[in-house]
Design a protein around this nucleic acid. Structure first.
Length: 438
RNA sequence: GUGGGUGUAGCUCAGCUGGUUAGAGCGCCGGAUUGUGGUUCCGGAGGUCGUGGGUUCGAAACCCAUCAUCCACCCCA
């Protein structure tokens, strides 16, 4: 039968896994360096936990699970695969009121979206989230920016930009453009978000189509007049916007100052009032990281969501967090040649000379492993030639042969396949020799 | 969800306007005096031409459907 992967999914063969594991390891080290603690949650949640959090577009992308028994036959749904790691966190916070706040957690796990696959986009993918719960201070937002900045740096990214905006600024801009309700506000944001793609004229066209009046749009554009730098942009916006927008501007200024004090390179930060992020639950600052070289959209995104936990419990807990998209990071790193080539996990292949000599080979393998050397022992005993080919094809550096001569002397032949040199030494010494070559 | 492209050996692809036994490179397997690879030489295996219909004397090539995949839009990590 013809076999296919489910759309938008991938197998990770050993070479992929080794590269990905290294990326995850780096990210995890950075997360812990900032004091974030690990958390995991079930991959599926009750459906009502997830619905109503992601907007109409997002809602369609939730993978739903049919009920057991007759309910499944009737097409009823009671559970769904998690869409992100933020809503599960909010649920955990609501269910565990004794968690000491502020609480920092990281979560690296798979999420699922019934999206149409594209470059760097899958239906099953990993996110690496850090969030701080229980702090309304701009310092918490700044810490998230700092951890994001550090992680991207340590992964080796050179040309990335973190764009910043605030939901309150966007709300005022939408209002200026004539948005009357959250529906038209969202409509405005969707159009505005395309600015760098379709240009001002294009956005004007879209807004007109969406029913925005030309003179109102003009008012919004005035507030968006480009300024020399972030400080000027914030000052100018503060001047043009209403009270809500002013609040956002002031807050964003504090976040930015704190982030820079935490070591974030100011050249990497850009206040961009046209940055719109779709998720419904954001309330304050929103941010997004992009790389300029391969076009894969954003590689990380986040923001503040002060109302989400309150949806699940009486007590509101202000939260802010950022999510790194592992899939896109790996895609970009692969394209830029930032991932090292993975060799075999084992360092040495112990060949099997013949069935008669099997015991000697196994003893040699034991000695190597006892010495801490990652060792493959050839399963079987085809011609030595083929075992050599196997070692070479898999990229081994070291190879061990134990034939009758070696066995008689109580040694093994250790060969370096790169240089071609070989010597007869005791198995334990062979182990030491390999270890010192690491 | 909308529009467009692609689908031929394990991999990358060639097969002109339909015509007899479908090709190449790489890879794979075997061999070149019987304890040694990676180079070279010789030989070999391997394809229901995505799948199902249709047009035709005849289709990998034309038409329809379907599945898969890629690109753009939408949205997003």
């Amino acid at each position: 039968m013809a076999v296919h992967l489910a759309k938008g999914t991938r197998d990770f063969l050993p070479a992929d896994m080794l590269a990905r594991r290294q990326v995850v390891h780096t990210v995890q080290q950075v997360f812990e360096r900032f004091g974030f603690e690990p958390l995991d949650t079930p991959v599926f949640e009750r459906i009502e936990t997830l619905t109503g959090k992601y907007g109409d577009e997002g809602e369609k992308l939730i993978y739903k699970i049919l009920k057991r028994g007759e309910g499944g036959v009737r097409g009823e749904v009671d559970q769904a695969l998690r869409y992100d790691l933020t809503v599960p966190l909010a649920r955990v916070l609501a269910m565990n009121p004794d968690i000491r706040l502020p609480f920092r957690r990281y979560h690296i796990a798979k999420v699922w979206r019934a999206d149409r696959p594209a470059k760097g986009r899958f239906r099953e993918f990993f996110q690496c989230d850090v969030d701080i719960a229980g702090s309304s201070s701009p310092l918490a937002d700044a810490e998230c920016l700092a951890v994001l900045h550090t992680a991207l740096n340590e992964l080796g990214f050179k040309g990335f930009t973190i764009r910043l905006n605030d939901r309150r600024i966007l709300a005022d801009l939408a209002a200026a453009a004539g948005a009357k309700d959250s529906q038209s506000e969202k409509s405005f944001l969707v159009a505005l978000d395309k600015l760098d793609k379709i240009g001002r004229a294009g956005v004007d066209g879209e807004l007109a189509e969406r029913g925005f009046a030309a003179d109102a749009i003009e008012t919004a554009w005035e507030a968006l007049t480009p300024q020399a730098d972030d400080a000027a942009t914030l000052a100018y916006l503060g001047d043009k916007l209403g009270n809500r927008g002013k609040e956002g501007v002031a807050y964003l200024g504090q976040v930015r100052d704190a982030a820079i004090a935490l070591g974030v390179d100011p050249a990497r930060l850009t206040v961009d009032p046209t940055l719109a992020r779709g998720l419904d639950y954001y309330t304050g600052p929103v941010f997004e990281a992009t790389v300029d070289e391969p076009k894969v959209g954003s590689i990380a995104g986040g923001g503040r969501y002060d109302g989400l936990v309150g949806v699940f419990s009486k007590q509101d807990i202000p939260c802010v967090g950022v999510s790194l998209g592992l899939e896109r990071i790996v895609t970009v790193m692969a394209e830029l040649g930032m991932l090292p080539e993975a060799g075999p996990v084992a360092e040495v292949l112990v060949t099997v000379f013949s069935d008669d000599q099997l015991g000697d080979s196994l003893a040699a393998a034991n000695a190597l492993r006892a010495a801490g050397v990652r060792t493959e022992v050839y399963a079987g005993s085809p011609k030595l030639k083929n075992q050599f080919k196997h070692a070479n094809a898999r990229g081994y550096t070291w190879l061990v042969v134990v034939g009758p001569d070696e066995a008689a002397e109580g040694v093994v032949t250790l060969k370096n396949l790169r240089t071609g040199e070989q010597q007869r030494i005791a198995a334990a010494q062979a182990g030491a020799r390999i270890l010192e070559s690491r």
